[in-house]
Design a protein around this nucleic acid. Structure first.
Lengths: 344, 344
DNA sequence: ACAGCAGCTGCAAGCGCTTCCAAACTACAC
DNA sequence: GTGTAGTTTGGAAGCGCTTGCAGCTGCTGT
């Protein structure tokens, strides 16, 4: 495997000049650059990033911490991050923290906090203030997506605002019997999303002077499957049936629609359903939703980081609110004219 | 940030001894090990992997190349790979090649073929023989999952065999009018999965002396959405309707079930549907399927690699067939007794 | 013609570890 | 007490780059 030394010999230049020519830093004559690049290409030479890192302190590698790449939002973000990083010539080291705190802790300490990555993107992961400080202390920019990260830059959508908007949409259609499918309490530990969206829902309901019925507050684990089970309880149980459901995610909205179909309920004639996310499947189900461009958020996070790395060591924590868009499809409509209480 | 030198001073040992103590290689007295570990812990010291890599040639980093982490199979595999790697103290560098050949090429050359990773796991990615040889030439073990990788080790399920089994299941139930939803031709370029599964289907049909009707051979892009659209054509078009559909993936099977529901067809009474994968959503739809444990395949790939890395430089290409399991649910049943030709 | 300057270039000193080597020490048998 | 083998240790030479520094070149202005 050729080293920079071989390139230097072949090009008739010094190692130093070749290094400068290939990295683009420092002054090199056009001729030398040409020579170096040709020689490198001939030999199939590529810099050893480990050696470069050691010498320069820059790893050209970004750590991405996600709860689980298997879930829609996270894999979407990772795709966006990955594409942006690849374009910029950076590597992506993935830390998929799917199983519990133990692993999470070791990741943070052994992997992230050391000289392995130039920066960290934490997706929906609530780091402790101390952990963030550690990262910042060693000059590693952090940007968080979708979770609160005290002291670090974050990119987030206006969770409370869009939940408010979603609920408001149902209210404006004339619904008064509105159920809310929120995230399980356990999810609230790491990223406060369920709580924030719930707050938006409550606000809208309060503003419209509508009652929030406890029996219409159900929760699931953010998956279609989990929401399907919860929705069957909600729609098939002995309680009065709502005319609309606001689900805190598209997957949960889809689970709700599937459950509704099981009971012969027509969406939107018998039941309106609205979600949040912009999941691809929303199209199949005609789901009205609020699209948060997850990939775009990932790409933006990368731009943030790289600007910080290349430009000045801008440690200023900036919170950016990422725009969302309302997507009207066919899962929401005016409530049934005549809502007969269910038999039984 | 403390270096190994600081640890050595604090422990009253030489740098060399501390290195040996912390890495576990070489002979170190229990006392020295204790001393070194305590000092390291006190200082919050963690080895710089870049320096270690440079000195030892081992990166403790595995490259994982996938077509798209956003898709079910790939993210499942990545989860399995990630967990196994984290446990072993390895990093995972993710190469998500979602967009075309250009990017793919640069990844292979600039990233993989150099001194950045100890090994490569290629998921459903067809590498050219030359590319594989390059990797092997620099002593980087490769293992492929779900795709043919001439010259490298692979882990695959018996695609043809399980397709045969799936079709056979339908045939044994008494179906004769069986449609096949296969993968789009474009997918065949990179991983020959659609073709292989199709072959299994054809074999089963031929063995049963059943006719393969061209109008019942439809294709989609492996997503629910794509299959939904194709299935609407199949089930709602003017051709005679099959009594069973064998979909080459669970997502496509689910798309088919959704389309069937649109036309008022009851699954399985009017239409049997079987898939392949073991997708979580299969449960919600009562989908009969053949479960390939994608996570398990990922974990196995890691074990393979690490065994090769730690043990002897075992370059022998081994093809492992990963076991699958038949999951009988409620989407398949005997065909309708009386199949009246559709009106229209 | 010559000082002044800017652009290029090469030398060499690291970056923070691993590991070869030889020295020092231990234990044990004779 | 001495020899032998095995264990433990530290010195020092890299791993393959980057980059500060100083020297060189060739051009400008006067």
């Amino acid at each position: 495997m050729p080293g920079i030394k071989d390139v230097a010999e072949r090009a008739g230049l010094s190692i130093a000049t070749v290094s400068r020519a290939l990295s683009g830093k420092g002054n090199v004559s056009a001729r030398s650059r040409e020579l170096a690049q040709t020689a490198a290409a001939d030999l199939g030479f590529v810099l050893s990033y480990h050696a470069s890192s050691l010498a320069s302190g820059r790893t050209h590698n970004v750590g991405v911490v996600v709860p689980s790449v298997h879930r829609w939002f996270f894999s979407s973000v990772v795709e966006g991050v990955s594409a942006a990083l690849l374009d910029a010539g950076y590597d992506l080291t993935l830390y998929n923290i799917s199983e519990g705190q133990e692993r999470r802790h070791s990741v943070l300490n052994d992997f992230l906090l050391r000289k392995r990555v130039d920066a960290v993107i934490a997706v929906s992961l609530e780091l402790r203030e101390a952990e963030i400080q550690q990262l910042l202390a060693i000059h590693r920019p952090i940007v968080g997506i979708g979770g609160p990260l005290p002291g670090a830059s974050t990119i987030r959508i206006d969770d409370s605002g869009i939940a408010d908007a979603a609920a408001r949409h149902l209210i404006q259609l004339g619904h008064t019997k509105i159920a809310h499918m929120t995230g399980d309490a356990e999810y609230d530990q790491d990223f406060r999303l369920p709580g924030t969206r719930q707050a938006g829902f409550k606000k809208a309901m309060k503003d419209a002077r509508l009652e929030i019925r406890p029996e219409w507050q159900v929760s699931a684990d953010f998956t279609i499957r989990g929401a399907y089970a919860s929705a069957r309880q909600l729609l098939g149980g002995s309680v009065e049936r709502p005319t609309a459901v606001f689900a805190a995610s598209d997957e949960m909205a889809i689970g709700t629609i599937l459950a509704a179909r099981d009971f012969g309920l027509r969406v939107p004639y018998d039941l309106s359903v609205i979600g949040i996310d912009g999941h691809e499947l929303g199209e199949v189900f005609g789901l009205t939703t609020i699209d948060q461009d997850a990939r775009g958020q990932g790409a933006l996070a990368v731009r943030r980081l790289l600007a910080g790395l290349d430009g000045g060591g801008d440690t200023a924590a900036a919170d950016t609110q990422y725009p969302t868009s309302f997507v009207m499809r066919s899962s929401t409509a005016v409530p049934p004219v005549d809502t007969v209480p269910r038999r039984g």
